[in-house]
Write a protein that binds this DNA or RNA. Structure first.
Lengths: 117, 117
DNA sequence: CCGCGTTATGTTTCGTCGGAAATAACGAAA
DNA sequence: TTTCGTTATTTCCGACGAAACATAACGCGG
């Protein structure tokens, strides 16, 4: 028991050859892109630069069997982006893995928190 | 299926006020200290500087209700360090949480890996 | 009482990652 | 054909964190 803020975070990353194919930040970005239909808008929402968002998308798209994000330039609103079916599957599966891991570790985590100052 | 190396990593961290009380690196260090009886030796084994190892230990010791590592200077061999009972408990509990999380997420992780290039 | 290996800690140097800015292309709509 | 907001990409620069380096203290054993 304390007045301080104790957080616990389970973070899972899938690596391929030392590059992160998918991880916490990338999944959040996927989610935001799905909601906004735009990489730029998603980046704004997440408080990151467009360049960073774009870099993450590129990494994901090249790491998997196919792109997770499909984008197009020009047109109404200047263009946009959306998740591919694969992207949707990856997103959902990752969230499931995350939820399962968090739930399974919960009892032990509680024990750890009790040992905090 | 691919010739490349795909790794999956579940990393859990317990934060207190924006500092990591315990995490993957710190736990590994605890384990190494328990085995070697020395912070310096543990650091060598892990390929990190003594300074870094010491910093990690200090953080852990101050974040929890009591120190996880007890150390002494001078004496035979120059000194040494060992885990306190609390340190042993934290180590064990963390590993349990880790194992539970890994096991619970395994099926989903398999699915993710199949989608890799 | 001197040397040795360790704990303990401060200072400074350096590499890397991300942000900022600049530029181009694109295509629909006005 | 001009405007507009997006995707796409490069170059440059600063901040942050880790590594490197430098000391000091400690206490047993020879």
């Amino acid at each position: 028991m304390s007045a301080t803020r104790a957080r616990f975070a389970v973070r899972m990353r899938l690596y391929i050859d030392d590059v992160v194919a998918i991880g916490p930040g990338k999944v959040d970005l996927l989610e935001e892109i799905a909601e906004t239909g735009s990489i730029a808008e998603a980046a704004r929402h997440m408080g990151m630069s467009y360049k960073r968002a774009w870099t993450l998308v590129k990494t994901m798209n090249t790491a998997f069997a196919g792109p997770l994000v499909a984008s197009e330039t020009g047109g109404k609103g200047g263009g946009g982006a959306e998740l591919t079916p694969l992207g949707q599957r990856i997103l959902a599966t990752y969230r499931q893995a995350e939820a399962a891991a968090t739930k399974a570790s919960a009892p032990h985590v509680r024990a750890l928190k009790k040992a905090l100052k």
